[in-house]
Design a protein around this nucleic acid. Structure first.
Lengths: 259, 259
DNA sequence: CCTGCTCGTATCGTATGACTTTATCGCAGA
DNA sequence: TCTGCGATAAAGTCATACGATACGAGCAGG
């Protein structure tokens, strides 16, 4: 899929071997290429894909185990785990989903969760923000206005805007959900009708309103406007999601966009 | 701390060597015994604690890396990561916190997040529940009423009650936050004034109200009553949290309780 | 023919030693 | 003082070996 991944490098150094193996296996599980049955036999995998040692393979499996994607039992083998035991909120698991065909239910679930959480985060941010928080949010907003609509720096600024709001909420556990928000934003960028200037401008206005509400310490307003922004994003995303979306469509869309 | 851990065995087979090492290291990081600096040198740890091979040690480190607790860089060493890069919502990370002194800010954060999320989950459950969901929630509720107040089975039923509600909400990503709820419940049991019959009875009534609201498909009511239950839990928990709580106090409290 | 026991095999867990890669730090030279 | 190169330390990778055990196949007995 080769989606530009804006998430900071968390676990999987893509240049490290075990990270590559982990991602490869993870994608195989997420796409459903490997169901909830046996994993590709150790040695077969080693031999066919890239010849890696048992060490690298096992460390990759340990990473997947830690994220709930596989269950290794002493002698029965290493099986892919059922979906409801995956740590779907793990940043790596979220980003691995970009390598698979878009799953409409999953994306809807993500937006639903975001819709529950991010307005609350905005409310807290309005009530608790420090001057430093304001500065950080404003800086991110400036990054969105001073760069071309869908440029790389603009997108990063957008993600930084939302992360800064979560940080301003001063709740360490809530902050872990910022990765859910950034994931939905990336899904929107990927799925919505491309080069949509109107959407961009409207989104910019939404962001400004949120920023102002936070500056004014108006928690309810910040929450309401954040909720509105989430709804708008979801709608923009769903324009594409209605049809059966596959990697093939997406590639076509991206090609159209670039040329 | 030796808290009875009610979370289902996720990653860390406690009988497996790498799991023990991972937990030991994780607790050292969470308690702050290891700051955001170097980890205990590889060989030292191997030699002093339990002599484990490099294999086991490295696999433990990989688990911690996957959960964001440590960052391993080729030459600079394996350092404990700053707290804001931990996956605090990971079930294992949550349960490892029970091995450390209670951190009031952290527990408040957990409750705050729960207060944002669980009422929404209850609302969705009321709107989307299937007959099977109802049966599951009812079974859990019966488990709470038909057993002695703070018995093991009762506590498990309590946790099952909340998990069943999340399941009924039919949102895979939301469901991952059920572990946050179960963690707060365990913190409550650990911290509140023990053998508090009044609290138990009141809690039982709250649970019944929530169950009825879900049966009646009244989303708003279910959400409101769930919010109330969360607030009550928090208050019961904070009666103890006001003072400086240490493992020592807790042990005393538990001893008092048992004799 | 069916049941049950035993043994072999596959696979994970653990251990060990050696070699490679990479990034940091310090030294030397400009 | 600044620059750059090399020594070095730690993680990463590989190969190999052995132990333990769950599962299944095959054999023996009813």
């Amino acid at each position: 899929m080769r989606v530009r991944d804006y998430s900071r490098p968390t676990t999987l150094n893509p240049d490290r071997l075990f990270g590559q193996v982990a991602q490869k296996l993870a994608v195989a599980i997420i796409t459903g290429a490997v169901k909830a049955g046996e994993l590709l036999p150790n040695e077969d995998d080693l031999r066919s894909e890239i010849s890696v040692s048992r060490t690298a393979y096992r460390e990759a499996v340990k990473i997947l185990t830690a994220k709930g994607l596989v269950e290794a039992r002493p002698k029965s083998g290493t099986r892919a785990a059922p979906r409801d035991s995956w740590n779907l909120l793990d940043p790596d698991v979220l980003s691995w989903h970009f390598e698979a065909d878009p799953n409409e239910k999953f994306i809807r679930d993500l937006f639903e969760l975001r819709h529950f959480v991010e307005p609350s985060a905005a409310r807290l941010a309005a009530l608790r923000r420090t001057p430093a928080d304001i500065a950080r949010i404003e800086a991110a907003f400036r990054g969105m206005t001073e760069n071309p609509p869908y440029a790389d720096t603009t997108i990063r600024a957008d993600l930084a805007f939302h992360e800064a709001i979560f940080a301003a909420a001063q709740n360490s556990t809530l902050q872990c959900l910022a990765s859910v928000v950034t994931a939905t934003i990336q899904w929107t960028l990927l799925l919505k009708s491309v080069d949509d200037r109107d959407f961009f401008v409207a989104s910019l206005v939404d962001h400004e309103h949120i920023l102002n509400a936070i500056i004014q310490r108006d928690g309810d307003l910040a929450a309401a406007r954040m909720a509105g922004l989430v709804i708008d994003s979801l709608n923009a995303t769903l324009t594409f999601l209605g049809d059966a979306v596959t990697l093939a469509n997406l590639k076509i869309a991206k090609i159209k966009h670039t040329k």
